[in-house]
Computed example of a mutant assay.
Amino acid sequence: MKRALEFHDSTVASVHVKESCLVVELSEAYIHESEGEPGVTAGNGYLQAATLTFSGTQTQLQSGLEGRLWDGRVSIQGELVGLLPVPLNAYGQVVAELNFETGQNLQITATGLSVTTHGEARWVEAYGG
C-alpha cells in the first residue's frame, strides 16, 4: 500500500524550532492510502499523527500557528508535490506554504524535509478513484 499526506483536513498541534529544524506536529494528518496512486486511485482515508521536519530552515515563526489547515503546498527542487509521500526524506531546496482556516499562512524555506507518522491510524472514509 502507498500512503500520502494531504494538508486539507489536517490539524497542526504545534510549530517549533529544534536545533536548525522547524518541526510541524500534526495531531491529525489526513492520510490517503491506496494500492495505486494515493488520492487518485480508489482507497481509504485515515487520520493519524504526523511530524514534518524541515531542516536548514529560513523561516520567521509567528505566534498562534495551531489549528486546522485549509490547504498547503510543497515544492522540492522546484517540483510541486500535491500529496506528500509517507514516509518521506527529501533533500534539496524545499519551499512550503501552510494555509490555516484562520487565514494565517506559514511560509517555509528549507534544505530538506522528512515526514513520519506515528500512533494508530483512524479510518475515516473510503474514496473512489
Rank of each mutant, 00 (worst) to 15 (best):
A110Y: 03
L26I: 15
G45A: 15
E66C: 12
K2S: 06
Q60K: 04
L65C: 04
G82T: 11
L84H: 09
T102W: 06
A121W: 04
P87Q: 13
A49V: 05
G112S: 02
V17H: 11
Q58G: 11
P85D: 08
P38M: 04
G39Y: 09
L5M: 00
N89S: 06
V86W: 14
L88T: 06
E6Q: 08
Q93N: 11
G56N: 11
L22T: 04
V115Y: 09
E66D: 09
E25L: 14
T57K: 02
L47P: 04
A90N: 08
A50E: 00
A4R: 01
L5T: 01
T11G: 04
L52G: 07
L69D: 03
A50K: 05
G82Y: 09
Q60P: 07
T102S: 01
L52M: 08
P87C: 04
S14W: 15
E25F: 11
G67E: 01
Q48C: 06
F100R: 04
G43P: 10
K18W: 08
L80T: 14
Y91R: 09
G103K: 05
G45F: 10
Q77C: 12
Q93A: 13
K2F: 03
D71F: 03
E66H: 07
V86A: 15
G43A: 15
E6I: 13
H118N: 07
R3N: 01
V94Y: 09
I108N: 04
S114C: 14
Q107A: 11
G39V: 02
V40N: 15
Y91E: 13
A90R: 12
A4H: 06
S20F: 06
G92C: 03
W70K: 12
E35P: 02
Q60L: 03
F54S: 00
R73G: 08
L22M: 10
L88I: 14
S10K: 01
L98R: 11
T51E: 09
C21E: 02
L26G: 15
T59E: 02
L65A: 07
N89G: 09
P87I: 06
S20K: 01
L5R: 00
G36V: 08
T11D: 02
V81T: 14
E19I: 04
Q104K: 09
V115H: 00
L80Y: 08
V95N: 02
F7E: 05
E28V: 10
V124L: 15
P87S: 10
E25Y: 14
A13T: 13
S27K: 13
V12D: 07
T116Q: 10
G43D: 13
V15N: 11
G56H: 00
T111V: 00
Q104S: 03
